[in-house]
Simulated scan of single mutants.
Amino acid sequence: MSVLLNFAIFPTDKGASVSQYVSKVLDFIRDSGVSYRLNPMGTTIETETMQEALEVVNKAYLILEPLADRIYATINIDARKGPIGRMDSKISSIENKIGKVNL
């Protein structure tokens, strides 16, 4: 199974720039060994199980919880039976079709 989970999580009570808090979460994700890609609006991870993906989000929350009184999070999930590697293959599929008209 391939679980793609895109999420954003950050404190809302720390001012306009929260990159120092988000970087703590990214340090954890990088060290976890989970495949990930940072994007301007969040981070996408790919795991083999839903439980593993949700554990990453929970651990991210636990990193921020002692540092903030209020934490905001959004999550989008795409779970599909089959092999992992969709984080790259989904993008490649679209890029290969750009400029081709197939109506």
Rank of each mutant, 00 (worst) to 15 (best):
M1D: 14
V3G: 00
L5E: 09
F7D: 08
F10Q: 11
P11Q: 00
T12G: 09
D13H: 00
K14M: 06
G15M: 02
A16R: 10
A16T: 09
S17Y: 08
S17E: 09
S23E: 05
S23M: 05
K24G: 11
K24A: 11
V25Y: 03
L26E: 03
R30I: 02
R30K: 15
G33T: 07
G33Y: 07
L38N: 07
I45T: 02
E46G: 04
T47G: 10
T47N: 11
E48I: 11
T49H: 15
A53K: 04
E55G: 12
V56C: 07
V56I: 15
V56G: 10
N58K: 04
A60Y: 00
L64H: 09
E65A: 09
E65Q: 13
P66D: 06
L67H: 10
L67G: 11
A68F: 08
A68C: 04
A68P: 04
T74A: 04
I75V: 15
I77E: 04
A79F: 12
A79I: 03
R80Y: 04
K81I: 12
K81Y: 11
K81H: 15
G82W: 00
G82Q: 04
P83Q: 13
I84S: 12
R86H: 15
R86I: 07
R86D: 05
M87Q: 10
S89D: 00
S89I: 01
K90F: 10
I91C: 00
S92D: 04
S92Q: 12
S93Q: 12
S93H: 12
G99F: 01
K100E: 15
N102D: 14
L103T: 13
